[in-house]
Design a protein around this nucleic acid. Structure first.
Lengths: 223, 223
DNA sequence: TCATAACCCGAGTAATTATTCGGATATACT
DNA sequence: AGTATATCCGAATAATTACTCGGGTTATGA
């Protein structure tokens, strides 16, 4: 015997979260309603945090009947997931645009430029990004967020390699693997935990330099 | 008027979580009881995940009355927080020991050695680390976890600087800030999301090389 | 204009979960 | 031995939350 309750498979003791929407809105008013729900979710996320969010609060904040919410979303998780997906699409678009622009620029400026674009894209949604990354417990179970940084960085590396042949790693796969996590972390950290007393321009300059050295630098030999 | 419910200040709509234990166990049996509760919390964390944990489940798994649990812990959060604190202490100790050993070694080996020790320390508690980092929503509100990586890295840098004068950053504060987040992320990523088909030794070699280059490397000038 | 489909709703239900409290039991101490 | 203190307990309570369902409203399009 096996049964579910609220996304938790009691038998296997494993969470199986249903992210999908119940149905898609087709008319204008229902689209507006869904949008209002996601907006309310976003506002509640940054004001009261993920834990405190309830479907009833979201419906109330959105000025929508709780019944209407359940017409489209089966649970709280799907609501937050839909919001994340919506925002991620926007951010990814901006980052990809930034990369295309960066590739037009001379090699010395490209990395710095792209880093700034990525930080900008996240900074516009600073509070939401912070809450989503640090408080949403099922984030890693979402396909999109799991693969996004990897995809982006791989694309970036192909582009970079095509542009010039400076980059020579001892173990290329391992280098790409590490650089992916390191650059993502540095950018996100800049946005959600900016340091006191260090100007943004300097942070970007230094980050670009660190990455560039990691990718192209040569360590002075002692002898 | 202001009131609380389950750690959530309804007026301010802000979470204020009570992490502190209600009282410290003094006799042997009560110490054992608290230890059993934390052990059960750990096992439940990795088997059913943070969301699904309840105080009642923890008490049952620990073979302890629910009433006894509430003698020492006011809520689910304080239970998980105490577990995190216990584990963090152990990990920090191992990492500090590793650094002391690393400082005995020649400069060329020290970083690689220390990285390996850190990865080892986390790897021993792989599952718990993963769940805690990705699923515990209040992690960033814990003083310990917030400051730990920074402290460690600052200590490491002082030591490294004392040992030799190779490291010359354009903006030292910014460099330390970025390297902290990047190295932490790389190590944690190695533990919780190890890549397929790349041996651990190679990952460590490459990571050490990347960091060393970022810290000491010189970019080849074009002209 | 009428039928059908899409949409909206919110009081009520079912289920879960955190937490208490009074009393029983064990240990420490004199 | 006797008293005070620490500990243990779990049925019962209180509170919250997810979610349904039947019925009303609005749009569509033939």
């Amino acid at each position: 015997m096996s049964w579910d309750y609220r996304g938790i498979d009691v038998t296997k003791n494993t969470q199986v979260i249903d992210f999908s929407m119940r149905k898609q809105p087709v008319q204008q008013r229902s689209k507006a309603l869904v949008a209002a729900l996601l907006d309310a979710t976003a506002r509640l996320l940054v004001t009261i945090g993920y834990i405190a969010i309830t479907t009833n609060k979201v419906a109330e904040k959105a000025g929508v009947g709780i019944g209407s919410l359940y017409e489209y979303f089966p649970n709280k998780e799907s609501l937050v997931a839909a919001l994340i997906e919506r925002n991620s699409m926007e951010i990814v678009k901006e980052i990809q645009l930034g990369m295309e622009q960066a590739l037009q620029k001379p090699h010395e400026e490209a990395l710095r430029f792209w880093l700034e674009k990525m930080v900008d894209a996240l900074d516009e949604r600073r509070d939401e990004v912070r809450v989503v990354i640090f408080e949403v417990p099922f984030l890693r179970q979402m396909p999109l967020l799991e693969t996004m940084p990897k995809t982006l960085m791989n694309v970036a590396f192909s582009a970079h390699k095509r542009a010039n042949d400076r980059v020579q790693f001892t173990y290329p796969k391992a280098a790409v693997y590490h650089l992916t996590s390191m650059v993502s972390a540095a950018i996100i950290n800049m946005v959600v935990h900016p340091p006191q007393h260090i100007p943004r321009e300097i942070l970007l300059d230094e980050l670009a330099e660190l990455i560039l050295r990691a990718m192209e630098g040569e360590v002075k030999t002692t002898g």
